[in-house]
């Protein structure tokens, strides 16, 4: 695995990773969003696999497999299960229209790049040069959370943030200590589960999952 092919493969995976996040912003149908999220899980696994190959550490390979299992298979399945029960729904008109969202995504990527300069300066290597991508995905995920009205798209937004953080973790130091990684993944799984239960309960009580309507608890 020569240096150049390693960095090319890495940047390919990161590119896919970022593209998936931006597409989530673009598409309106919930089913498409879930598929994109699964695609991003695959891209993330790709990044970790390339890193594992580059450093030839079996343990990192195993972790890549774990991530594939969780983020590419299990989580999308959970979200799709919640979606199927409600039938194919379209994202109602989001708070910020699609064109503006894309512009915002561009700005956020720039911000991510500017912010992560010191990160790269600390230990310049092909992996750390890809860190801005991870940070951009985190910010885009946050943006999805803030602007999308449907409950499921908020869940996907939250999971995007987690993907981004995991990517940064692997790109910077080849992963946080194993126990912590395990705990974090478990927690993310539980969070997704809780959100999924809440979505179904919300559909039962409110009849829809448009979050902007949820305004009863307010001081206004």
């Amino acid at each position: 695995m020569t240096q150049t092919t390693f960095s090319q493969l890495l940047y390919l995976a990161c590119g896919a990773f970022l593209l998936a996040a931006v597409l989530v912003l673009w598409r309106r149908e919930l089913a498409a969003i879930v598929r994109l999220f699964a695609l991003q899980g695959v891209a993330l696994t790709g990044i970790v696999a390339v890193l594992a190959a580059h450093e030839r550490s079996l343990e990192l390979g195993l972790v890549a497999a774990g991530i594939a299992g969780l983020r590419a298979v299990l989580l999308p399945y959970l979200v799709r299960r919640a979606l199927d029960r409600a039938g194919p729904g379209r994202e109602t008109k989001p708070l910020v229209n699609v064109a503006a969202s894309l512009l915002a995504a561009a700005v956020l990527t720039l911000v991510a790049y500017a912010v992560s300069q010191p990160l790269i300066a600390l230990a310049p290597s092909p992996a750390t040069r890809a860190v801005p991508v991870g940070l951009a995905v985190v910010l885009i995920g946050f943006f999805v959370l803030v602007t999308r009205r449907r409950a499921l798209s908020q869940v996907v937004g939250f999971l995007l943030i987690d993907n981004g953080i995991t990517a940064i973790a692997f790109l910077t130091t080849a992963g946080v200590p194993l126990i912590v990684e395990l705990g974090v993944s478990l927690d993310v799984l539980f969070a997704a589960l809780v959100l999924q239960v809440l979505t179904t309960r919300m559909r039962a009580t409110f009849g829809h999952t448009d979050l902007d309507e949820l305004r009863e608890l307010r001081d206004a």
């Binding site: 009205r149 979050l211 949820l214 305004r215 307010r218 001081d219 206004a220």
Partner: peptide, 10 residues
């Protein structure tokens, strides 16, 4: 001040 908490998650 009450406008600060209009209840919308967003």
């Amino acid at each position: 001040g009450r406008q600060l908490a209009t209840g919308s998650v967003h």
